[in-house]
Structure formats: structure tokens, C-alpha cells
């Protein structure tokens, strides 16, 4: 809605909007700032905001601990792996739904998407027991598979919405020229859908990176990603306040960067398409 607004009101509104923005951003900002303080400054009385001796000491200490690198690598492996695997499974399905829809396609899609709303506890036991049997507990592979499965509906649905924007005639023309399905998807559809696929990758990577229910329940030490690492620092007693801030900052840095570019996809993905 666009309406004429007086200049004075506009300034007040803008100031209010920025004030709220600062308030919302403050916890993130504070965490990032604290990560550059010494432990003593971090719990200083009264707290210091900006004017302290900036130090990278915390980052050095945290990264030098070999286990941090392992958590990071697990996060990258699990989030990246489940995303790529999910896309591989989802592209053919989304292709079929977008270009050769049947009467039931819309319903199937909605049904699939609705499963993403179900609580994970409903399938925790079977997956847990299956993991014990197959020796997948606390393994990166197991977690990758589970995250791929739980995000599959969202991947299919997002790809579907992007594929639908591509005119089907182009694919048909390729088929007329004798392209097989494989080359039709690989060489015609995918190049045309690169932006859509990239958005889907981005959203799914963030979702998988942030996932905590499964990572906490299915991993112990070997395959635990950063979410589990942060959760394990449960004592807030101020001992490693600055170091924990540094670890958190490193855990959220990729999200802070990716989040800026993918807010639209995040809103779409998290509202299951209610916001287009």
C-alpha cells in the first residue's frame, strides 16, 4: 500500500523502524562484539560496548582446538551433502510435476509439503532404531541422509515453483530434436533453472545448517556439527564467555552472510509458500 505521508511522520516512522531494527539486531551484534574482547573485558563491570582493545585471541584459541575444526567440517559436510543429495533426488520429481502434471500433482505436492510441519519426534524411534541396526548412529552419512529426507519436500516444492516459470515449449522443442530425458533435464532444464536451483540450494543449506533436533539426537562426538557444539557449552557461568562468543560468531557467520541474500527464500520456505 502506498499513501502520501508527511515528511515529519516519515522521519518519526523511519526512526522508530530503525530503533526496532537495532533492538532486534542487538543480541547478534553483542555476541559478535564480545567475541573480540578479552575474557576480562567480556564480563567487565560496567560493560564496554565499542571502546575496548580488539583482540583475535578468542578466535585463535577456539580454532586451535582441533575439535572446533571437526565440528565445522561436520556442519559443512552434512549441510552441503544433504542439500546436494536432495537436489539430485528432487530435480526429476520437480521436472515431472512442473512439465507433465497430472490431476493429482498439486495435491501430492501439498501433501508432501505438509509432512514438513509434522514434529520430528513422530519418527524419532524408527529412525533411531534403524540407525542402531545399521551402525549409522553418530555418523555423518546417517545425518546427511536424514536431513536430506526431512528437507526433500521443501526442495521438490521450491524447484517445482521455479521450474513452472520456464516455458515448457523449450523443453518440448528439445524433445522434438531427439533429446533423451536425461539430456533434456541436464542440458536444457538445469541451465535455464540455475537461479532457481541456486535459491533452493541456499535455503536448504541454511535449514540443514541450523537443524538441531536430529543433530542433537543422532550424534554424539564424531559426527556432531556446530549446533551440537554450541549446545554443549551449556554453562553460562562466564568462564569462557568471550570464547563461546567467538565460537558462536563462527557458527553463525555463514548464515549472517547467506541470510542477507536469501531472506526471500527463507520466508517462502518457512511459510510453505504462504508468502510468494
Amino acid at each position: 500500500m502506498a499513501r502520501a505521508v508527511t515528511t515529519q511522520r516519515k522521519i518519526i516512522n523511519t526512526a522508530a523502524a530503525w530503533a526496532v531494527g537495532l533492538l532486534i539486531f542487538f543480541p547478534i551484534l553483542w555476541t559478535v562484539l564480545t567475541s573480540f574482547k578479552t575474557e576480562a573485558t567480556a564480563i567487565a563491570d560496567p560493560p564496554v560496548f565499542l571502546f575496548f582493545d580488539w583482540t583475535f585471541e578468542n578466535y585463535k584459541v577456539v580454532t586451535e582446538r582441533s575439535d572446533y575444526a571437526r565440528f565445522l567440517w561436520n556442519s559443512i559436510f552434512i549441510a552441503g551433502g544433504s542439500t546436494l543429495l536432495g537436489i539430485l533426488v528432487a530435480v526429476p520429481a520437480a521436472w515431472s510435476m512442473a512439465f507433465v502434471p497430472s490431476r493429482r500433482t498439486k495435491d501430492i505436492l501439498l501433501w508432501m509439503l505438509s509432512t514438513k510441519m509434522l514434529p520430528a519426534v513422530g519418527v524419532l524411534y524408527p529412525i533411531y532404531l534403524l540407525f542402531i541396526k545399521m551402525g549409522l548412529l553418530d555418523s555423518r552419512l546417517g545425518l546427511t541422509l536424514v536431513l536430506m529426507l526431512i528437507n526433500l519436500p521443501i526442495i521438490i516444492w521450491m524447484l517445482y515453483t521455479y521450474f513452472r516459470e520456464i516455458p515448457g515449449e523449450i523443453l518440448e522443442a528439445a524433445r522434438m530434436d531427439g533429446a533423451t530425458l536425461r539430456s533434456e533435464i541436464l542440458f536444457v532444464l538445469i541451465p535455464l533453472a540455475v537461479p532457481g536451483i541456486a535459491s533452493t540450494l541456499l535455503l536448504n543449506f541454511i535449514l540443514a545448517w541450523n537443524e538441531a533436533f536430529w543433530t542433537l539426537n543422532l550424534t554424539a562426538a564424531k559426527a556432531a556439527p556446530l549446533t551440537a557444539f554450541i549446545a554443549s557449552y551449556s554453562s553460562p557461568e562466564g568462564l569462557f564467555y568471550a570464547k563461546l562468543s567467538a565460537a558462536s560468531t563462527m557458527a553463525i557467520a555463514p548464515i549472517l552472510i547467506l541470510g542477507w541474500f536469501s531472506q526471500k527464500q527463507l520466508v517462502r520456505g518457512l511459510t510453505f509458500g504462504a508468502v510468494k
Binding site: M1, A2, R3, V5, R9, K10, N13, T14, A17, W18, V20, G21, I24, F25, P27, I28, I206, W209, N210, E211, A212, T227, I230, A231, S248, A251, I252, I255, L256, L258, G259, W260, S262, Q263, L266, V267, L270
Partner: peptide, 25 residues
Amino acid sequence: LDQKIRAEGVIRPIYLYPMALSFIV
């Protein structure tokens, strides 16, 4: 935000940031 705020394009992502973080963080 609908009141023709200046630099809305910067504020909106800031409002949305918390959502991009893990509940754990």
C-alpha cells in the same frame, strides 16, 4: 515498514536475521 520508510531494503533483512539463525544459537 509499510509507511514508506527510508532504506527499507536494509531494515527488512535486519528484522529477518533472527529467523535465519538456529534456535540453538
